[in-house]
Write a protein that binds this DNA or RNA. Structure first.
Lengths: 110, 110
DNA sequence: TGTCATACTCCAATGGCCGGTATATAACGG
DNA sequence: CCGTTATATACCGGCCATTGGAGTATGACA
């Protein structure tokens, strides 16, 4: 039970999959959207993370398709993966709440 | 302007200093509190991060005291450090909002 | 014809964090 | 009286996720 914090790219990959099964390249573009263009995943980061997350059982292969001779491997979030992401959201909410309060930022509700 | 995401220990160190100047060991215990015991900073992580953050200009030495022959070096957040932390809070809020929505967690307001 | 979009693979280098050791004093418990 | 915990900082090897590329391949667009 590592339970060490997820880094941003990993967090966003899980978030992308929380909307339903997607293939690698789709995740890449979705992450760009989610983060309003702030985060652009490198191919190396993405596919390495996908392998790692699958090894950890947080995601799994949903299906594979061949489109124009090009492989599309779809991944989906597993129940443990969804739990892990939810736990991470909680952790981040707690931390941002403290930080915002200390910085005098009171725009927390809305 | 690197502007790559802060990792959790770094984020919490800045958050600790957002409450006012503190010395290394104080930050360590404060971080344990902030995170409700979930995160315990290693000495290696803490002091290395302090040096790094000072190099980046996000924090600076506030003052030094000698208490019982023991050195206490107090650090404080610089204006750029506060801005950086605020930006990080914004980024995390945006990400957690999307993730929570996709997970069907609606406990965002309160 | 060239470049962008699609789609996955692999690799060297970077750098923050982990885990531990070292140093030193004071206080508390058994 | 001795061991452990608390206070307080410094240093270091190693790990591993991310970075930042290059490589392979096809179709579309200008």
């Amino acid at each position: 039970m590592s339970q060490r914090p997820l880094q941003e790219p990993t967090f966003l990959i899980l978030t992308a999959l929380a909307a339903g099964a997607q293939h690698g390249y789709g995740i890449m573009t979705d992450v760009t959207d989610i983060s309003a263009g702030r985060v652009k995943l490198r191919a190396g980061t993405l596919y390495a993370a996908l392998d790692r997350l699958a090894d950890e059982g947080l995601i799994e292969v949903d299906r594979e398709e061949i489109v124009d001779t090009r492989l599309r491997r779809y991944y989906r979030l597993t129940p443990p993966g969804a739990q892990r992401l939810a736990a991470e959201v909680e952790r981040m909410r707690a931390h941002t709440t403290v930080a915002a309060r200390r910085l005098g930022l009171l725009g927390g509700l809305a």
